[in-house]
Design a protein around this nucleic acid. Sequence first.
DNA 1: ACAAAAGTGTTAATCTTACACCCATGG
DNA 2: CCATGGGTGTAAGATTAACACTTTTGT
Lengths: 246, 246
Amino acid sequence: MASLVGTTAESFILHPMSVSGTEIKIAVDAIVFGYSKNEGVSVLLIQRKYPPFKNAWAIPGGFVLPEESLEEAVRRELMEETGIEVNYLEQLYTFGDPQRDPRKRVISVAYFALVKSAQFQQLKASTDAENAQWFNIKSLPALAFDHKKILNLAIERVRTKIRYQPIGFELLDRKFPFADLEKLYITLLDRDIDRRNFSKKVLALGILDETNEYAKSEGKGRPSKMYQFNKKRYQELVKEGINFEI
Amino acid sequence: MASLVGTTAESFILHPMSVSGTEIKIAVDAIVFGYSKNEGVSVLLIQRKYPPFKNAWAIPGGFVLPEESLEEAVRRELMEETGIEVNYLEQLYTFGDPQRDPRKRVISVAYFALVKSAQFQQLKASTDAENAQWFNIKSLPALAFDHKKILNLAIERVRTKIRYQPIGFELLDRKFPFADLEKLYITLLDRDIDRRNFSKKVLALGILDETNEYAKSEGKGRPSKMYQFNKKRYQELVKEGINFEI
DNA sequence: ACAAAAGTGTTAATCTTACACCCATGG
DNA sequence: CCATGGGTGTAAGATTAACACTTTTGT
């Protein structure tokens, strides 16, 4: 049987004693999204150190260990490769095409993840993972393997899902000015939103708590109230059959 | 390394020489839905011949072969185990909990599938797979492994998806009386539908062709026109940005 | 002629969209 | 006092929901 050295998919090396290759390896990959008001939506990529696709950018991920769940594997790999802890994690799709890895059959369970705005900012500065980097989704590099396809699916999923599930809040800080939420939706849906209609709609859902804090002004304009997402309330409302839709 | 005899997950046997068990096996499972006007929604299950869960009912599926895609694996296993060819196949979710199979680590990529009404009827009669059987989703037996969870997710997915994708047609015959479509929606959504509003809405989508055939009467009532789903037209409309929603 | 299911239109209610002015702050 | 962004209400239009009688067939 083929034997593998190392645990991350992007660095595995076929051992010289490899034989049949009938064994299928199972990996996880995670498309991590970050958001900031100024830069919009970014994804976290890592640069490969080994062939194939040496030096190409790729989605972080790696092989699943025998005793860990898929989600644990994702969180472990993200920590190892990028030093990040995500805030929201959801299974996206499983990619299993026999040719997707040129070396060997690898089936990859892809996840997408969201990080809070503050953490996204912070990570940008950290020196933790030198070969990990955020890329704005409007200017992505070429990607290794079928990672472009995975990434496109993830982007589409987030765009779609944000309209009927309150996942947008997972990209903002815990407390945020209302305008940030609006800007996030404008960015993701790529169209203008009427501020009045949007705020009426969102506030009518009853899942945002108004805090008594105000945004520190950035030099100009009226400071805005800070809001926070009330997850408990949201879950209660879901049970009562209310449905989020924007 | 553990070695496995046979290809179907529900019948695999650990070879006496098994050692470490660090190898993860990859399987596919498929929840196949059938529908008939009289019996409503059914799923296809197989009865296990080997322990664990010997004689319990289970979702059909099995291990992925080294050279086949996941979807090919599903179709192959369905043919082998139940003799069925499905009409619609979509990936559902990947189940990877380390404890889900008591013997060994098995990650399963679950699919759901839809078969046309006529084929569903026909298969019920066929003697092809003696240990395969249709069960109405309202009276399901206990299931092996975590298959109950998988099945529940599949049911939920179909119920949700039928509201925004035209997958309902995949459960009916190619030509069907309008009332059958309505009854399917009533069954799946589990609530009454106003016949006039429903037909207005569906016909307004412009994706149903009226044929010049009429349903053979079943003894009483006015015979209905037969309709058929125009998939090509639907795809054109999707490109133009129209969206199906019921 | 009656029982059973198919076919069809109108109105009220709800939801969605379009639209513009005043307010609070910093410079 | 000006520039900037925050905060807010109303009316028209579009969509959805409620509702019942006529037609066609078999018996």
